[in-house]
Nucleic acid binder design. Structure first.
Lengths: 248, 248
DNA sequence: CGGGGGCTTGAAACTGATCAAAACGCGTGG
DNA sequence: CCACGCGTTTTGATCAGTTTCAAGCCCCCG
């Protein structure tokens, strides 16, 4: 069931006919595993396939002004380079954070499927639009918020997105990244991120040990972060967990 | 020719059949004019139409943490709320910067046209992907660059985008926004933006008087900004000017 | 002529960066 | 089993870019 997470992800934001789900399930693909720091795609590539994250995390990053800026994290079910269907050049690296497995689907397989199904075209288009909404949220996060709420917002977003694909359990999730990565994502120094996280701990909002993040007081954390999940455009009706089951 | 700019914009990033161009030209629409500060759409709206900027500037903004963060500027030819075709709720305000004119096209008119033409579907999808690439660039700009290159980058981007729709002449373009707006877009204080612009002037890179920005040394400015236009994904072949003429 | 918005300037305060080093955990090889 | 080395986290001290506060100026508009 390699496309289980992809289907779960799409079902969490759009309705899909049974037929379209079958189309997705049957897509031919190539599975690769990556180790920490491996690149699933490089800046300048013109990939002939799209990458579907099956397990683990990927980050989108690029060197800007001496810094390694991270502009997105991708979790299971995401298709980080879906845009290469229309914009051939990758303008960033896709880097594996910890170990990950990725299914690659050829553009030449994907295009006919999309041509045949307006429902899937809409689903994937919608998916890229939600990615766009996330980028906008990051712009606001970096442009407007002080360090503490900024870092808190990142945790809120990851928790909510992981919840949507069934990877948030009992207030905890697996986070295979370093404080350095958080710094690169938030536009802060590593030292300051460290102090900020200590502050969040001291406030009793979260724990983060051995790659496990535990959100202790989610409402309080979201309050500090001024987080509102609307921009992720999750469907109301099917609860994240039902969605997962439906896709299994 | 209300959709002239839209067609010019699309032609600058994608090829369109003659038939598709006719489809665009014939789209029914409603034209509205806005004064400085008017809202073309409000956060929370679920619009039944898309807005095509015909003249002037719009900004996408939202209050975040006491600040009025701007997450995008839209110029003639842009469709700032194209995403409402798939994501019904607007999560920002669209605000007119100076006077502007906007053509509104009903979703119910747009959807059948897109269903009938894969070429147009791809063109509009591609357009939203480029908007996404611009957001990513802003994330990097806000996350990684100091004030001077950050502000410079904004000017470079605007110059290049305006050039693509034929609104950049002799190194100058019309910019109907205040330093306050630049501050809100760049995540800086108004005071510091003022000093930064003075610095850019002192360096002989640009002038900005009475809403006219003159780029004096574009290569130098792009250097300071670490600007590379690739992320805007302009087509090579048809030069911006030819594109304009082709659409007229 | 008055008022207001935008631009400009100066001084003080502060958030977050930088530099430096120590503590910690973990895998590797001796 | 211990020694070593490396990457990550933590802590302290200093530094600097940017914010904030406050005031004055300019110019357009009523």
């Amino acid at each position: 069931m390699p496309h289980r997470k992809l289907i779960a992800r799409l079902l969490s934001v759009v309705e899909l006919s049974e037929q379209d789900q079958v189309r997705l399930r049957d897509m031919p693909h190539l599975i690769k595993t990556f180790r920490d720091g491996d690149f699933a795609a490089r800046q300048g590539d013109s990939p002939v396939h799209c990458a579907v994250v099956m397990s683990g995390f990927l980050s989108r990053q690029r060197i800007v002004s001496d810094r390694n800026q991270i502009s997105a994290f991708y979790i299971p079910g995401d298709v980080p380079d879906l845009h290469t269907l229309h914009l051939s050049a990758m303008d960033h690296d896709l880097c594996s954070e910890g170990a990950s497995t990725v299914a690659f689907i050829l553009h030449s397989h994907l295009r006919p499927i999309l041509m045949a199904s307006p429902g899937l075209t809409n689903a994937f288009w919608r998916e890229t639009l939600i990615q766009g909404a996330i980028y906008r949220e990051w712009v606001e996060n970096l442009g407007s918020r002080a360090a503490l709420p900024r870092v808190a917002h990142l945790f809120c977003e990851l928790a909510t997105r992981l919840e949507m694909v069934g990877l948030f359990h009992n207030g905890s999730f697996h986070l295979p990244i370093t404080q350095q990565d958080v710094a690169n994502a938030c536009g802060l120094s590593t030292v300051h991120v460290n102090r900020t996280i200590q502050e969040l701990r001291k406030m009793g909002l979260l724990e983060w040990r051995e790659q496990i993040v535990s959100v202790l007081r989610r409402d309080k954390l979201e309050n500090v972060a001024e987080f509102s999940a609307e921009y992720l455009h999750a469907l109301e009706a099917p609860k994240p967990h039902e969605t997962m089951r439906a896709a299994e």
